[in-house]
Design a protein around this nucleic acid. Structure first.
Lengths: 282, 282
DNA sequence: TGCAGCGATACCGTGGGGGTATCGGTGAGC
DNA sequence: GCTCACCGATACCCCCACGGTATCGCTGCA
C-alpha cells in the first residue's frame, strides 16, 4: 500500500462522502472512487458500504482507518525528523515541547527554567496547540516532547513520565447553589441548573449543536463561568488562575488527573533524554 | 513521501550498495539512483554520501533509516490487520502469539491452557520466529501478542505485562573449571577458556566471522555446550531443560531478565484484552 | 596504464493516475 | 407517482513518472 492510497482512504472514511473527500484532497471525485476501488480489490476486502445516498465503514474499514492514521503519522514523523536532523547539522539543535494554553503553566515554566540552567541545554520551542493535538504532534514528529493529561490524552505508544497527579474539581460561578456542597459526582453535572457544559470546536473548527455556550479558549471559558453560563471539570490547580468569582467544588468520583511528559518511545535523542532527566528530578 | 520511496531508501541504506539494493528490490539500478536522488531533492537533505567506491549514511540518513523502518512496519501492520479483520467477519477470529523456541516454554503452555479454558476463548496460533523477530512481528501486524525478554527485545511503543522476572545464568559444560565458582561476571565471559560465544545468523541468514561455533537453534546450542565448545548466557529457567552434562553458574552483574507479554499499544481488540487479563492473573 | 566496479546520466516506452463527461440508482418533495 | 437533485461508478482521454537499456565518468587496484 502506498501512502497516497492511505491518505485517500482516510479522507473518504472521515468524510463518508466521496465528493467532499475529493475536494479535501484536491482531486476530482472519479479518480478517488477508482483509487478506493483498487485498494479494496488489492486487499480483497470491502472497506466501505456505499449506496447512492450514503457511505459507511465496514468493520475492516474501521480497522484500516485506525491503522492508516497511525501509519500516516509515522510517515509524517519520518519526514519531519529527517528534516530536523539535517537542520541540526548546520544550525543549533533544538527541542519542541507541545503543550496547551493554561495547562500546568507554572509547572512547565519551572521545568523549562530548570532545563535551561543545565549545561549543554538546547533551545526549547513551545508548540501551543488545540487540546488533544499534543499527542498527535509527538506522533507525527512536529514535537519532540508533549505535556499530556491522563486519562484524557492518548499516551499509548509513547514513553511517559508522570509530573503531577491531582484530583479534579468542578469550576462554578461563585454563589451557585452547588458551591455549598462538599463535593459533586459525575452524575450531578448534567443536572447543574442553568450551567450546560461548554462546547469546543472539532478539528474542522465547527461546533456541534447543544445547549452549552461555544468557547474557543480558556479565558473565554473562565469568563463564561463567572457570568454564570457554564461549568468546567478541570484539575484542581486550574482553580488557582480563576478569579474570586469562580468557585471550585471537588469532583468526588472522577479519576485523578496525571500531568505527564511524553515522548516517542523509540527516541534516541540525547537532548530529549536530558530534558526528561530534568523533569523526573523535579 | 510514498512507501515506495521509503522501501527504496531502506534497501540502499541497509545494503550500502545501489546495485545490490536494486537487485533486492527487483528493479534496475538507474531508476533506484534516480528515486533516491529525487527523495533527497524533495527533502532538501543529503541522505547518503557516495563516492564511486563506497556509499555511507549521513546523520539525517541514519535518522530516516530508523524512522522509515517503523513507518513501513506501521503500513504493513495496517494491511495485515485489515485483512485479518476481514477474515474475522466470515471465519472465526483468532489470535497470533509470537514467541521463540525454548523461551519460557511451560509458562507459555500454562498461559495457553488457562486462556483456552476461558469462556469465549479464541483459537491461538503460535508463530515461532527467529530470536528478536517477535517484537517486529507485533509491530508489523503478523502477530497480535508476543513473548519478549527485557532488556534484550525492544519493547518501546508496545504495551507490556511482566510475566516473570529471573536472574541470568551462564550455561557451561559440566566439569568446566568455572563451574566450581560461586558466580561469574560479564567481564569473565570473554576469557572462558575454549568456550567462545556462539554465533547466530543475521537477517540474511549469514554468519559473521568469529571464533565461536555457528548455531541455528537451541538444541544445537545445548549440544555444543555439552560437547564443551561454547557457553550461553540465559535466564535461570533455561537450565531446567539442559541435561546433566550442562551446568549453570549465576551471572552476578547481569540485569534480571523479564519475560513479558507485549501487544500493540493502541490495540482495541477484545480478544487481546482477554488474553492479557488471563496472563496477569497467572 | 588499463581495467573492473559502481553510481550517475541520457533517452525511451508504457502503465497508471488524474482529468472531463456522463450514466445509473435512490431518496425527497410536490 | 413523477420529477429532480444528489451521489458514486463508469467511459474515455491525456500525460507524466516510473522502469528499462545503453553509456558515461570516476576511482582504486593490478
Amino acid at each position: 500500500m502506498e501512502t497516497r492510497e492511505l491518505r485517500y482512504f482516510v479522507a473518504v472514511a472521515e468524510e463518508l462522502h466521496f465528493g467532499r473527500a475529493a475536494e479535501r484532497l484536491g482531486i476530482a471525485q472519479p479518480p478517488l472512487s477508482r483509487a478506493i476501488g483498487q485498494l479494496e480489490r488489492r486487499l480483497g476486502v470491502r472497506l466501505l458500504e456505499r449506496s447512492s445516498r450514503s457511505v459507511s465503514l465496514t468493520a475492516p474499514g474501521q480497522v484500516l482507518l485506525d491503522e492508516a492514521r497511525t501509519a500516516l503519522d509515522a510517515v509524517a514523523a519520518a519526514e519531519r525528523r529527517t528534516r530536523r536532523a539535517a537542520e541540526a547539522v548546520e544550525a543549533a539543535p533544538r527541542l519542541v515541547l507541545a503543550t496547551k494554553a493554561g495547562a500546568a503553566n507554572e509547572l512547565v515554566a519551572k521545568l523549562l527554567d530548570r532545563y535551561a540552567a543545565e549545561p549543554g541545554a538546547v533551545v526549547v520551542e513551545v508548540l501551543l496547540g488545540a487540546p488533544g493535538d499534543q499527542s498527535r504532534a509527538v506522533r507525527d514528529g512536529r514535537a519532540d516532547l508533549a505535556i499530556l493529561h491522563a486519562p484524557y490524552d492518548d499516551t499509548s505508544g509513547l514513553d511517559v513520565e508522570v509530573l503531577v497527579r491531582e484530583p479534579q474539581v468542578v469550576l462554578l460561578p461563585a454563589g451557585h447553589p452547588a458551591t455549598g456542597t462538599a463535593g459533586l459526582r459525575g452524575a450531578d453535572l448534567a443536572s447543574l441548573e442553568g450551567l450546560p457544559a461548554p462546547r469546543w470546536p472539532d478539528d474542522a473548527g465547527r461546533y456541534a449543536d447543544g445547549p452549552g455556550p461555544a468557547v474557543r479558549d480558556t479565558a473565554q471559558l473562565l469568563q463564561l463561568i463567572e457570568l454564570g453560563r457554564t461549568h468546567l471539570t478541570a484539575p484542581a490547580s486550574a482553580a488557582d488562575h480563576a478569579g474570586s468569582a469562580v468557585a471550585a467544588v471537588p469532583l468526588l468520583d472522577a479519576p485523578e488527573v496525571e500531568t505527564v511528559l511524553a515522548w516517542p518511545a523509540h527516541s534516541r535523542s540525547h537532548d530529549v533524554a536530558r530534558f526528561v532527566e530534568v523533569a523526573t528530578a523535579l
